[in-house]
Amino acid sequence: MKLCCDNSSDADLWLLNSCTVKNPAEDHFRNTIKKAQEQNKKVVVAGCVPQAQPRMDYIKGLSIIGVQQIDRVVEVVEETIKGHSVRLLGQKKDKGKRLGGARLDLPKIRKNPLIEIISVNTGCLNACTYCKTKHARGELASYSVAELIDRAIQSFQVLESGW
């Protein structure tokens, strides 16, 4: 099994992230899944499309990581390589209150070491007729102050170690 490849055709598994806000992005996602299947690749799909529409025909039988479960990507990839289909789509909650999205301490690749973007919340307040974001990401939920401070500290540590 190859862990890293220069060419997608050399990979044993394709991990495909998605956006559901606009139809062209979703169409590209569906076409990429089809291409992977034609090449007999194992496929893990992530992001808004499977979260908002987990019963779509073109993702049946594939492993799925929802928007709040991305921190479990290694587990899902390992199980998929073993031939299992995994579906993680649940909303994270604490005492009935919806929590923010994926953990803030996940590693990031920063294009500019002097800039860090820290999300303070996830989800959406509106229900615009042209947009599926609220359906995919859920109601607005905030990260805790402690999580935000920890991420800021982590960002400064990365900055200091790189200089």
Rank of each mutant, 00 (worst) to 15 (best):
R72L: 09
I81T: 06
L13N: 04
D94V: 15
L88D: 03
R87K: 14
V74M: 09
I33A: 00
E75N: 09
G83C: 04
K42P: 05
R30S: 11
F29N: 02
G90S: 10
E38I: 11
S85Q: 11
G96M: 03
I59W: 01
Q37R: 10
T32G: 11
K93H: 10
E26V: 08
A11C: 06
N40E: 12
G66V: 01
I59E: 01
Q53N: 15
V44T: 01
I65T: 04
V86R: 00
L62R: 00
P54F: 03
I81C: 08
K35M: 14
L16V: 07
D27C: 14
D12S: 08
P50I: 03
K35Y: 12
G83L: 02
E78C: 09
I81V: 11
S9D: 15
K34L: 10
E26R: 10
Q69N: 13
V74K: 12
H28D: 15
S18I: 05
K93I: 10
K42N: 09
A11L: 04
T80Q: 03
G90L: 08
N40P: 08
H84F: 10
I65Q: 01
I70L: 13
G66R: 00
K34G: 08
K97L: 11
Q51G: 04
S85K: 08
Q39C: 13
E78P: 06
N17L: 06
N31F: 12
I33P: 00
Q53C: 14
H28E: 15
Q53Y: 15
P50L: 03
P24F: 05
V45Q: 02
R72K: 13
G96H: 02
A11H: 03
H28F: 15
S85N: 08
D57R: 13
D27E: 15
S63G: 05
G90R: 10
H84R: 14
Q91I: 12
D10V: 09
N40K: 12
Q68S: 11
R87Q: 10
K42T: 08
Q69L: 07
K95A: 13
V73K: 11
Q91Y: 09
K97G: 08
G83W: 03
Q69I: 07
K97F: 11
E78S: 10
A11Y: 02
T20M: 05
Q51C: 05
G83S: 03
S8Y: 15
D27P: 11
I65P: 01
H84A: 11
Q39N: 15
A52T: 03
D71W: 06
K41H: 06
I81G: 05
D12A: 09
R55C: 12
V86G: 00
Y58K: 06
A46P: 05
A46S: 11
Q53E: 14
I70C: 13
W14T: 01
L89E: 01
V44Q: 00
K97I: 14
L16H: 05
K60S: 09
T20N: 07
V49A: 04
V44F: 00
T20V: 12
I65E: 00
T32M: 13
E75C: 06
